[in-house]
């Protein structure tokens, strides 16, 4: 088991958003969480990543056998949990490559590995950038600075490729992408499916799932998973909308 979420309750500014959520993800599995706006999808992602405004009021999250909730955000990241942000922030003046090198070395250090040398790092990073069809100039630009929406999303997947996480949570990575960009992003994700790495895809539309085939699909509504199934469920959602599925779920 990579992650085991049990009866999770989480609040933002005193308002409970996640209300008793259960989810287990095993190695190599791809899970998709779908749900209408305001169902708590992004809150779940941010809570798992350890954002400080998100308060866990009840429940447990066991990540690779340890208590995830006891860790700080950066400790979770170093333990191999990656969040692809829905709205990646711009950090002026801090170059992509500089931040990535620091992040990668922090992760390597946590794994007990030596720091990667600069030549090796650049070779590695260029290879990953090529995979995501990112221009070389991308690397030296400030983190997300002046990037278009699509560039930001590709940058997130590129960072994931460099950091090689154990669990990648991708929060609405498909939103705002045209079909070509969506394929690039999906290829980037698929290239990293290796039977060990687990994925949690958070999305509003089933479109993404045409390109990244999930093993399981869950429907989140009002802070709880109300239905789980296979890719078929996603198609059903597309055909009948959330209302139909939620009504059927009671």
């Amino acid at each position: 088991m990579i992650i085991d979420i049990s009866n999770l309750h989480a609040s933002v500014n005193g308002t409970e958003i996640i209300k008793g959520l259960n989810l287990q993800i095993g190695p190599g599995e791809v899970h998709a969480i779908m749900g209408p706006n305001g169902s708590g999808k992004s809150t779940l992602a941010q809570t798992l990543a350890g954002k400080s405004d998100y308060e866990v009021t009840a429940g447990t999250v066991t990540y690779k056998g340890a208590d995830l909730l006891a860790l700080e955000a950066d400790e979770r990241a170093r333990a191999g949990l990656f969040l692809g942000f829905q709205y990646p922030v711009e950090i002026p003046g801090v170059s992509n490559v500089y931040m990535l090198k620091a992040a990668l070395n922090a992760r390597r250090k946590a794994k007990g590995l030596a720091e990667i040398d600069s030549v090796e790092f650049m070779r590695f990073v260029r290879e990953k950038a090529k995979l995501m069809q990112l221009d070389q100039s991308f690397l030296s630009r400030g983190v997300n600075e002046g990037f278009s929406g699509g560039e930001k999303k590709r940058n997130e997947i590129f960072q994931m490729a460099v950091l090689e996480p154990d669990l990648a949570i991708l929060d609405e990575t498909d939103s705002g992408l045209d079909i070509d960009a969506l394929k690039v992003v999906a290829n980037g994700v698929n290239a990293q499916r290796d039977g060990e790495r687990a994925f949690l895809l958070i999305t509003h539309y089933q479109r993404l799932l045409d390109y990244i085939k999930p093993d399981y699909v869950h429907v989140l509504a009002n802070g709880r998973i109300v239905r789980s199934g296979t890719h078929e469920l996603a198609l059903e959602l597309e055909a009948n909308g959330y209302d139909g599925v939620l009504a059927a779920a009671g």
């Binding site: 990543a49 170093r78 620091a102």
Partner: peptide, 17 residues
């Protein structure tokens, strides 16, 4: 938060920013 999500300690993140 973004920097810390990528695994940087708070101090390193602040220095970088």
């Amino acid at each position: 938060f973004y920097c810390r999500q990528r695994g940087l300690s708070e101090e390193d993140a602040v220095n970088m920013i």
